[in-house]
């Protein structure tokens, strides 16, 4: 019985995902088609990339709520540079990543040196970055030149180019997490910051770096997103922090820290959320129902996560 619980908790979401796919593809015609599935992955790519950075922070047992605003701020600055100041794209687009890393660094510095709880620190920066971004775009939607948009939807054969790039990034972050000292120290801090400090890990440095990466990947995700949409909207990134956290928890990356893997975790988590919306769409549900369903799914995932945490001591013996 205990074993069954463990299996359900560890593999519950893949199982549900598989069941969902089966049900929806039986109920509708076009759902289980190659192009639709590629389309789903395509639209999940920006979310997955944002998750890559946030995952590192969450695996440390900390949180960064500012990822959505960071994505907005960095893309807004670069879009304004391109559209209003005619800065060459070759300069403006990389600037996105720079802004993102800087934004992450600020949150990280507040957490590490002012010793403020990451939740409240990143909540503060979340609003600050959004405010600055709205100021920058002067509350207008900014449309980007066509070539950027074309790039976002470029395909090789049937496969979107950004899926390929996204997968490469996932693999790189996977290596960073699983095969580098940095990634291992992140996990160590997630296990116990106290113990990590005792065994000689430079926890401040690692924490700061993780927040910088969180900002970096948030802005990279933002870049992918504006490439797909061809514009920077005013709601860009709003609510993204929650969706990203949800995707991570669904992917088995525990909010209690230390647990989970980038692959397949981030991939599965990102896909699941987009898939659910896509299937609701195919089933003809009202689009206004989406946030409710998404919130419900994420809540259940988080409940399972904390249940797993509670069962942990029993699992040990």
């Amino acid at each position: 019985m205990k074993k069954l619980n463990t299996i359900l908790l560890s593999y519950g979401f893949p199982i549900i995902l598989a069941m969902l796919v089966i049900v929806v593809s039986m109920a509708t015609d076009q759902f289980f088609s190659f192009s639709n599935i590629l389309g789903i992955i395509h639209s999940a790519v920006p979310l997955m990339i944002v998750c890559c950075g946030l995952a590192l922070v969450i695996m440390m047992g900390k949180i960064d709520l500012s990822v959505g605003s960071t994505a907005f701020l960095s893309t807004a600055i670069s879009a304004v540079m391109i559209v209003r100041f005619n800065v060459p794209q070759i300069l403006a687009l990389p600037a996105i990543l720079l802004v993102g890393a800087a934004a992450g660094a600020i949150t990280g510095l507040i957490v590490v040196y002012l010793r403020i709880n990451p939740l409240i620190a990143s909540m503060g920066t979340m609003f600050i970055y959004r405010g600055i971004a709205l100021q920058v775009v002067r509350s207008r939607v900014i449309s980007l030149p066509d070539n950027i948009r074309n790039f976002g939807n470029l395909r090789i054969g049937p496969v979107y180019v950004d899926i390929l790039i996204g997968l490469v990034i996932l693999v790189l972050v996977y290596l960073l997490h699983q095969w580098s000292w940095f990634g291992r120290h992140v996990v160590a801090i997630g296990n116990s910051e106290e113990t990590a400090r005792k065994v000689g890990i430079k926890t401040n440095k690692v924490t700061l770096l993780a927040f910088i990466l969180s900002g970096f990947f948030a802005s990279l995700g933002g870049l992918f997103s504006i490439c797909q949409l061809g514009s920077v909207t005013l709601h860009m990134g709003s609510g993204m922090e929650f969706t990203a956290i949800g995707a991570l928890v669904i992917g088995g990356i525990s909010l209690f820290g230390g647990e989970g893997k980038i692959l397949p975790g981030v991939f599965l988590g990102g896909i699941t959320l987009i898939l659910i919306e896509n299937s609701l769409n195919h089933l003809g549900a009202s689009p206004y129902l989406y946030p409710f369903v998404r919130g419900g799914v994420i809540f259940i995932a988080m409940y399972a996560d904390s249940l797993k945490q509670k069962l942990q001591p029993e699992l040990q013996t």
Partner: peptide
């Protein structure tokens, strides 16, 4: 009673609640 993390629970309720409102 379920010992879940406060911000997680309340953020979820916020999103779910918003979802219901919009719906």
């Amino acid at each position: 009673f379920l010992r879940m993390i406060p911000f997680v629970v309340t953020l979820s309720i916020q999103i779910i609640g918003m979802g219901i409102c919009v719906w």
